[in-house]
Structure formats: C-alpha cells, structure tokens
Simulated scan of single mutants.
Amino acid sequence: MSDNNHLCLLGLIFLSSLLTGVSGVDDAHVFISSGEDVRLSCNNALHDCTSTTWNYNRFSHSTTVELIALGRKKDTERHERLSLGSDCSLNIRNISTEDSGSYSCQQWTGVGGERLRPDAGVYLHVLHVSSSQTEISAGLSVTLFCQLYSYPRVSCGDSVDSERIDLFWVNQAGVKLRSDSRYQISSSSDPCIISLNTTLLNEDHNREWRCEVTHRDQVKSSVTYTVKSSAEAGSTTAVIPVHSTHSQDPSTTNTHTTKVIVSIVEFAVFAAPTVILLQIICTRRAGRKDSQQPAEIEKNTITE
C-alpha cells in the first residue's frame, strides 16, 4: 500500500475515533433542595447496567459507601430511597442534607474484575432552609437560615468549574434582599450559609421569601418560606419549606451532559463531511492506481 493510502486510512481512523469518543468523563454538579427527588446521570454507562457500581463519599463517612454493586442495590440505610434507572442513573427519593456528597459511577467486568471505563463523578449539593421558630406571631422576630450542604464542603464565593457559587434571599418579585430597616441579612462563607432576620407584621400573611443558590449566575435551586395566618387574629404560622419550581429545572439539570451532547452535535456537523471527503479522495486514488496497473503490466511484458 502506498504512502498516500496510509495517510487516507490514518485520517479516517482518527476522525472515527473522535466521533465515537468526543471527550473524557468530567465531574458534574447537581443542585437540589431538601425533600425533592433527584436523578444522578452516569456518563460512562454501557449498553446495560450489570456492570454499573455507584459509590458515595461524605465528610462524616470515613470510608466509601457502596450503594449499587453491578446493577444491584446494596443493603444500606438508604436502600428504600434508591433505585437504578434504565440508563444506569442513580435515583434518590426525598433528598436530605445527609445525601449531599460525592458520587461516582463505575463500570466493572464483574466481582473482582477490571474497571472498564474512567469513573463518572457527580457532586450533589443540597439546599436547606430552617427557622429559629415554628409558631410565631406578629411583632415577634424570626430568623431564617439557608445553607448549602456539599462535600467536599463548598464556601460561598468558591468556584466550581471556574464559576462562583452564591446564596441570596429574594422577595416575591425576585428582587434580592439587602440589609435595611426591615431586613437584616448576614452570611458566612464557610459553611455556605445566609440568614434573614425580620420582625413580622400583620400584613405578612402569605408573604414569601425565597433562598436561591446560583452557579454561573444561573439559579440552580431554591427554597421558599411562606407565612400563613391562622384563624386567630394576629397569630401566624411559619410554613417551611415550599420547594420552588426553579430547583433543577430541565434547562439546568445535569448541565455537563447537555454541554457534551451539544459538543457532539457540533463536532459531527463538522467532521461528517470531512470523513466523506476523505473517503472520496481515497476511492479516487485507489481507482487511479487500478487504472494504471494494466498499462504497467503491458510495459513490463514488452521489456521482457
């Protein structure tokens, strides 16, 4: 085979390998509010889940906890809340702050076997709101605490994928609250927590304050605190939390996977015509070589 044919073959192999494996597996970040359900994608899954193992790490755990082993649930304290999706994703119901942490999806050939692919890591961040009081009345003050639980522990203002994570309190109109004569806002960077203190008024019936966590200047999850008045005059009851529809909406769920899919489509649009062009060039060159062979054979015969 000629050098030109070698180059054509190498070009096709190179582009084919790019199309079948556009990028490596990166860690993803998922934000959710406590009490909700979450789906953690396994970005290195094979055609079935019999090779899939899910592990979990948290600061309070000294060792790795195996949640799913080769497609089967392990007997853990969260057994009833866990399930494995058809795409090997890990589903967790009724998320609590204890579920925050680092998850990894692995692919193995079997028990005591070899790892087939690099781990797919997922960091789960859980947003939770608590109150200093449950039964309150007009004229009394209340403090709301909003904290983001993460492992490794994230500080407010820290960067994830070179972007900041921040917490904010906003009113019903979505306007960020700042300290003034009505509200006292204070925050701590480590742990990532922001508090809101205010004195309730009679007109605060059905008042909502929402805590939002942003990443890359986009709202990833939020929890709403609502004050409901009871039948007794002047008496109010704190209702917490009401989970906002902002929490991991489809446009922000698993942004890493979305970006990879977009990259694949964009790359395929560019690479597919290049592959076809290489095939045409190689075919034409092969045809020219075949058309020249009879003449070369005749020439050699006359010479002899």
Score class of each variant (00 low, 15 high):
91 N>E: 12
100 S>T: 01
69 A>H: 14
71 G>Q: 14
86 S>T: 11
81 R>F: 05
96 S>K: 00
66 E>D: 14
109 T>K: 08
102 S>Q: 12
102 S>Y: 08
86 S>D: 12
73 K>E: 10
72 R>A: 13
107 Q>D: 02
66 E>R: 15
83 S>L: 07
69 A>T: 15
100 S>Q: 06
109 T>L: 02
67 L>G: 05
60 S>Q: 15
84 L>D: 02
63 T>D: 13
85 G>M: 07
74 K>R: 15
83 S>D: 03
104 S>I: 00
95 I>D: 00
78 R>M: 12
98 E>H: 08
86 S>R: 11
62 S>A: 14
109 T>Q: 08
96 S>N: 02
92 I>T: 01
108 W>M: 07
69 A>W: 08
95 I>P: 00
71 G>A: 12
74 K>C: 11
76 T>S: 10
71 G>V: 11
88 C>I: 01
79 H>M: 13
80 E>K: 14
77 E>S: 08
106 Q>E: 12
108 W>Y: 13
75 D>K: 10
68 I>M: 09
81 R>D: 08
99 D>N: 02
68 I>Y: 06
84 L>P: 08
90 L>Q: 00
99 D>T: 01
93 R>C: 07
94 N>D: 14
66 E>I: 13
110 G>H: 10
94 N>R: 09
71 G>C: 12
93 R>W: 09
105 C>G: 05
106 Q>T: 10
86 S>M: 07
60 S>H: 12
78 R>Y: 04
89 S>Y: 04
98 E>G: 07
91 N>P: 04
89 S>D: 09
70 L>I: 11
109 T>F: 00
79 H>A: 12
64 T>Q: 14
65 V>H: 06
83 S>Q: 03
82 L>W: 06
95 I>C: 00
93 R>Y: 09
95 I>N: 01
109 T>S: 15
103 Y>V: 05
97 T>W: 00
78 R>K: 08
83 S>I: 03
80 E>Q: 12
